[in-house]
Design a protein around this nucleic acid. Structure first.
Length: 260
DNA sequence: ATCCGGGCGT
DNA sequence: ACGCCCGGAT
């Protein structure tokens, strides 16, 4: 696998750095978003906010506007909140400690392990879709509904502890390549889920509202559904959810992206 | 119309 | 354990 990786492993900008902040940004972006869509955003984002300090000082509206196109914009808010915690609790440096990483918003088991392996060279064991695909293909060829608790010991057993960074890059490239040849092996994971239809959904309306407010500034609450080009009731429900979670707020009859 | 892709609240 | 969170490609 290493020989393959040396010859035609993917060359990706976040693989050219060991800056923990850059790695963290890339991993947040890569959650539920494919490489091709992250590529044009990643460099732009880091030029604008090259460290946690600058990210923490950014406004919510500009962060959401810059995130536009990546989807699941709560990740942008998580990244900004994580930057603030890194500033106040870790002296502006992305922590190496696994529990401290896990305590950051938007950072779960995968992302904590990825930052530790890719930025700090630590031999953590973690799973994402490409790693699951590779392990399922090799070690569970005839099984359906394989749980992560079964995959993790296998991942630990095969891990190259001498070079966790290269090992995981190679493993992920292998898994990604498998998906182009055959049905996605990670669909045999017990944790694979098919999500509900997007067209006509609440999250489509949420996305439209956030995009409009972050790009254009506050709008009259009553006019938002026209600007979205969606039914009044669906937009009202999406707006209520966004207000309830604090992503947007009312200012009199206007709606705007949260300011603090 | 279907596919893909981690974290988190419940 | 399960449902929700986006958007572009095919």
């Amino acid at each position: 696998m290493y020989a393959e990786y040396q010859e035609r492993g993917r060359v990706l900008p976040w693989r050219e750095t060991r800056d923990p902040w850059a790695i963290l940004v890339s991993e947040l972006m890569l959650q539920q978003t494919q490489v091709a869509r992250v590529l044009p955003k990643y460099g732009e984002w880091l030029r604008r906010w090259p460290d946690p300090s600058s990210m923490a000082a950014a406004s919510v509206a500009e962060v959401l506007a810059a995130w536009s196109g990546l989807g699941y914009n709560r990740r942008a808010l998580a990244l900004k909140a994580a930057a603030s915690i890194i500033e106040t609790e870790h002296g502006g440096t992305v922590p190496e400690d696994a529990a401290a990483l896990r305590a950051l918003p938007g950072v779960g088991g995968y992302t904590a392990g990825a930052v530790r392996a890719f930025a700090f060279g630590l031999p953590d064991v973690f799973l994402e879709t490409n790693i699951r695909a590779a392990l399922l293909h090799w070690f569970f060829p005839d099984r359906e509904g394989v749980r992560d608790r079964e995959l993790l010991p296998v991942a630990a057993a095969v891990l190259d502890r001498a070079d966790p960074r290269a090992w995981h890059y190679a493993l992920m490239d292998y898994g990604a390549a498998l998906k182009k040849l055959a049905p996605n092996p990670s669909r045999r994971s017990a944790h694979h889920a098919v999500q509900s239809r997007f067209e006509g959904s609440l999250r489509q309306a949420r996305g439209a509202i956030v995009r409009i407010l972050s790009a254009e500034g506050p709008h009259e609450a009553e006019s938002i559904h026209e600007r979205c080009g969606m039914e009044r009731e669906r937009v009202a429900n999406a707006l209520a959810a966004l207000v309830a979670e604090g992503t947007v707020e009312y200012a009199g009859s206007l709606v705007r992206v949260r300011e603090t």
